[in-house]
Simulated scan of single mutants.
Amino acid sequence: MSTLLSDSKTCEKLDRDPTPKHKRELVSILQRLEKEDKIKKADKQFLYPTSENVPRIYGSPKIHKDGTPLRSIVDFTGSIGYNVAKSLADILSPIVGQSEHHVLNSKSLAEDLKDVTLEGDEILNSHDVVALFTSTPIDLTLHILKERLNEDKDLKNRTLLTTDDIIELTKFCLATVAYFSYSGQIYRQCFGMAMGSPLSSLACNIFMEWLEQKAISTAPESCRPRLWKRYVDDVLKIIRKGQVDNLTDHLNTIDPTCYETPPYHPQYACSPEGQTSPATKSRDDL
């Protein structure tokens, strides 16, 4: 974990606990929203930061990968923005997962694939999004979210908050209170989002839906996937043989921080394209 926190591009040490300052900022926003009749008194009481726990980071071992690297997770329970993030997730959840590429769970994926057959020049292959949460740009995600909210005709039936109000609160949860403690030291996350917030997974999905739509629509015909299904940061696709590298190169022109293909990365136990016999099935090439 110390190695992860030593990356200055991702984290920086703070000299003091920013919780009191950010609590005043949140209280000011909530008071304004109540005054404008956008939240009721009961809503304000739920959102009001009565607990001031500093979020804490811990590592969850990825036992399925070589070297057992750690997945960093931040526990936001009891932090000043936790209830706000939970409420925003409820408001925003209906606009996520409407894409044809979205996978809800393994059952829905099996249903999607039950009638799919491969042509002789095709393979079933996967891509993995590298460090999705810490690679997702917050400003761009907020821009995408604003566009989606402006198009959401049902938003007014779910909340009295305006699009600008939601963006303000979302930015507070994802960027302003993006700090955590480890071994008595407080750090601020400099880029991306922290896994563990009730809002970050949803925000990452919003970004990925935009990214994949752009990537697929602009992919050269020769390497354009015939099928693309994504569950959070794992993508299953049908692509022509010999085109995996070309597709990876294209994906990285859309956002060079995100994509890489497992068959050529040493941390994955997968067979490279072209080395899988018809009788052998691996996670990435069929």
Rank of each mutant, 00 (worst) to 15 (best):
E147A: 05
E122I: 10
L124R: 09
S106W: 00
S135F: 02
L118D: 02
D152G: 04
V103H: 01
T136W: 05
V116R: 01
H101K: 10
A110L: 11
D139I: 15
I95K: 00
E119M: 08
E168M: 14
S108Y: 05
A131E: 15
L160Q: 14
L113W: 13
N150S: 07
T170Q: 02
V96L: 14
L124W: 04
K171H: 09
P137M: 12
F133V: 02
L161T: 03
H101W: 10
K153N: 10
S99I: 06
V96W: 03
D112T: 09
K146N: 00
A110M: 07
L124I: 04
T141A: 11
N105P: 06
T141D: 03
I167C: 09
E151G: 12
H143Q: 13
D154L: 13
D165C: 07
E122V: 05
S181M: 05
A178P: 07
K171I: 01
I95D: 00
S108P: 00
L109H: 05
V130M: 05
L113A: 11
T117Q: 12
T136G: 07
T163K: 02
C173R: 11
E122H: 08
L145P: 01
E111A: 10
V177Y: 07
L161Y: 03
V96E: 14
H102K: 06
D165A: 11
R148V: 04
L169T: 05
L142W: 00
G97H: 13
D152Y: 03
I138K: 14
D165E: 14
K114D: 09
E147G: 15
H102G: 02
E100H: 09
L118M: 10
L174W: 06
F172R: 01
E168H: 07
Q98R: 15
L149M: 06
T117V: 12
H102N: 12
T176I: 13
L142H: 01
E100N: 10
E122M: 10
V129S: 02
V177W: 07
T162E: 14
F172W: 04
K156V: 12
A175I: 05
N125C: 14
T170A: 15
S181Y: 03
V129G: 03
D128M: 12
D152F: 06
L145H: 00
G97I: 15
T170I: 08
S106Q: 07
D121G: 03
S126K: 11
T162L: 13
V129Y: 04
D128C: 10
L132F: 03
K114H: 11
L118N: 02
V177L: 06
F133H: 03
E151R: 12
H102M: 11
S106P: 00
E151D: 12
S181A: 15
G120I: 08
K153G: 05
S106T: 08
H127R: 04
D165S: 11
L155V: 06
T141Q: 03
H101E: 13
D164S: 13
T117I: 11
S126W: 02
L149I: 06
A175K: 15
G97Q: 12
N150Y: 08
H143W: 08
A178K: 02
D128L: 09
T162F: 09
L155A: 02
G120T: 10
S126I: 11
I144T: 00
L104K: 15
K107F: 10
